[in-house]
């Protein structure tokens, strides 16, 4: 593991004449697990998309392992992004296609191979390893669309890990899941982080979904960073009350922090 270092400097994203994201400085070190939280419309997804180069900032630089993503051509940017795995929200992928689970996980190997080179036996060994690792061997030849929401999320994580990434970016990986699946998915993400030590950026609007392994949180509010640092310092009532504009209490249980509205 050699990469996974990400920096944002004086980044501004303007849309329809207003700033939707302003980040003066942000540095994510290799191997960190960072939770990005905030209210609806605070700019969480925009920040994640800026970090992986999907949104080009109006101003400022986004540096991934020393390369300024904004200054690269599409071809070179694709080469740099080979080390990023990204799991978007459900609206950004087509879950109705009849891809089998194995085909879907194999998509993770695509960017590890040059154009025109097909996947080989070794690639499929990696694919099968991740299917097995996430306990989905019995679902291997089932279609993605026939899986439950939680299983689909596991399949997407297997696809992301098959890419052998240095950074894993997850955008609300637990939305629309029941509480048991939310717990299982976050447990899997935490295990992957402790085993592989990859950098993880996870967007979530539920604070209790950030697992114990997540030591740093970034709280966004109206497109700006309201707090950034140790999760204990960020997830405290004063900061959260400023963002959510209501009286808040934090309850800790089994290593997780539950935000409770006191008003």
């Amino acid at each position: 593991m050699t990469g996974g270092d990400l920096s944002l400097s004086n980044v501004e994203v303007r849309w329809n004449g207003r700033n939707i994201l302003v980040v003066k400085e942000m540095h994510i070190r290799r191997g960190e697990f960072v939770g990005i939280i905030g209210t609806n419309g605070a700019g969480k997804t925009t920040l994640l998309k800026v970090c992986c180069g999907l949104i080009k900032p109006t101003r400022g630089t986004v540096t991934l392992d020393g390369c300024d993503l904004a200054g690269l051509s599409a071809w070179r940017k694709a080469n740099v992004r080979k080390h990023i795995s990204y799991i978007p929200q459900a609206a950004e992928y087509n879950a109705d296609l009849p891809f089998t689970l194995r085909e879907l996980v194999a998509m993770g190997r695509t960017s590890t191979k040059p154009l025109l080179y097909p996947l080989n036996k070794e690639d499929y060994e990696i694919v099968d390893h991740w299917i097995e690792r996430l306990a989905m061997s019995d679902r291997r030849s089932q279609t993605f669309r026939s899986l439950s929401g939680g299983e689909q999320q596991k399949a997407l994580i297997a696809r992301a890990m098959a890419q052998d990434p240095e950074i894993l970016m997850l955008d609300e990986p637990c939305s629309n899941l029941d509480f048991n699946w939310k717990y299982q998915i976050t447990e899997i993400i935490e295990q992957l982080h402790s085993e592989s030590k990859i950098t993880i950026l996870m967007v979530s609007h539920e604070t209790n979904l950030l697992p114990e392994g997540c030591k740093r949180a970034i709280l966004l509010h109206e497109g700006g960073i309201l707090a950034d640092g140790d999760i204990e310092d960020v997830l405290e009532p004063n900061s959260l009350e400023k963002a959510y504009r209501c009286r808040i209490d934090i309850l800790k249980f089994a290593g997780r922090r539950y935000t409770v509205n006191k008003s």
Binding site: L54, S85, E92, M107
Partner: peptide, 8 residues
């Protein structure tokens, strides 16, 4: 989106 973000 995934294709673009992951270096395809």
């Amino acid at each position: 989106t995934i294709a673009s973000a992951t270096g395809v």
